[in-house]
Design a protein around this nucleic acid. Structure first.
Lengths: 193, 193
DNA sequence: ATTGCATGTCAACAGTTGTTGGCATACGGT
DNA sequence: ACCGTATGCCAACAACTGTTGACATGCAAT
């Protein structure tokens, strides 16, 4: 820490940094934290393994950079209350499509404590905050967010990690119509039904 | 192969084999496949690492033995149709309590292809078979089973692997009353609601 | 008592891992 | 043209991994 960092003037190595990050995300998503080796990531990025260390400090540091993730939850306040579930499923399905960062985080969270903590942060902060915006009883907010997370992560786990055939084959629209009511009940309903 | 195997006459090393298996399940459940080392498992079981190799052939073989798992789904035919969801959630919650085999399988399935395949088998065979016992349209059976798996595994993942606080803290009875209606709808309901 | 086999210990192997330091090269400011 | 520095490659280290083989010990049957 020397200065508050001038708006990050572009470095000559930005292309390399980006290539490393892209390869890292792919490998972490495909193999998980431990099986994704720095050597393999470097080979994918067509650079030397020592460059990874120089730019990201360590494997942990590289993962922290590669797993930077924002759910980008939309503002839920203008959504009609009865469409909240559908909106959320649609958002997550499209958010995952073409961005393997969450799959990387999901795979890594199973074995890497740091990744698990980050996953807790993301869902405890971002999702709970979103659920809190529309006015349900504040004492149930965390619980509702947890239940939503359980179905959302279960969907991601079965479809993108374990690849259960029926979950892989189901068209997004069918997933929406099946799962939206579940989230809807977790968000605005009551236990028991 | 000499004879069709006499009912597995007890070997003098059965205690050792069991100790290895117990230590293996603990380590696989706590650390996942790659971080659970044979040396650590052997140390827990207070034996030499080479014994693991002799009795289980390889690390893969040890995992295959340690992750032998049966969902032990009850016969669902005598259950009143409207109680199917509740019965299933209760069954899974009690099945996981005190048996870390499924957590081991869950953690390992994220990074180990063989473990993922076993997980697919378990849920594709055992769960789909159970869902098929009560007569819904056979063309939707696999799909319903997949959806149930997504919520069940999401519950396990958030509660036992990632340890999302609200999901860890929620009493089993509350989990049942929240999640049972979800499974109920996946099993006997229609998409859209 | 002696043989045969199951059980267990010890040491070492070959490969892979994250990580480090030295050295060449090429860019950018003077 | 010159120099400081950023960028990149190469070789190597130390630690750890699964796995193997040689050797000791003890049980059980002859």
């Amino acid at each position: 820490m020397t200065a508050p960092a001038p708006p990050t003037q572009p470095r000559r190595s930005d292309a390399t940094r980006a290539a490393i990050l892209r390869a890292a995300r792919e490998r972490f998503a495909a193999d998980g934290y431990e099986r994704a080796t720095i050597r393999a990531i470097a080979a994918d990025a067509q650079i030397d393994p020592s460059m990874v260390m120089r730019y990201y400090g360590s494997k942990e540091g590289l993962f922290a950079a590669a797993a930077e993730f924002d759910l980008r939850l939309p503002d839920l306040t203008p959504i009609p209350p009865e469409q909240l579930g559908e909106t959320l499923v649609r958002h997550f399905l499209s958010r995952w499509d073409g961005d393997e960062t969450l799959v990387a985080l999901l795979r890594a969270a199973s074995t890497n404590p740091g990744a698990a903590e980050r996953m807790r942060d993301i869902f405890a902060n971002q999702l709970t905050a979103a659920v809190a915006t529309f006015g349900t009883d504040p004492t149930t907010t965390a619980r509702r967010a947890g239940l939503v997370a359980s179905q959302i992560l279960g969907l991601a786990f079965t479809r993108y990690v374990v690849r259960l055939p029926p979950m892989v084959d189901m068209p997004p629209e069918d997933l929406v119509s099946w799962i939206a009511p579940t989230l809807q009940r977790y968000l605005t309903g009551t236990p028991g039904s």
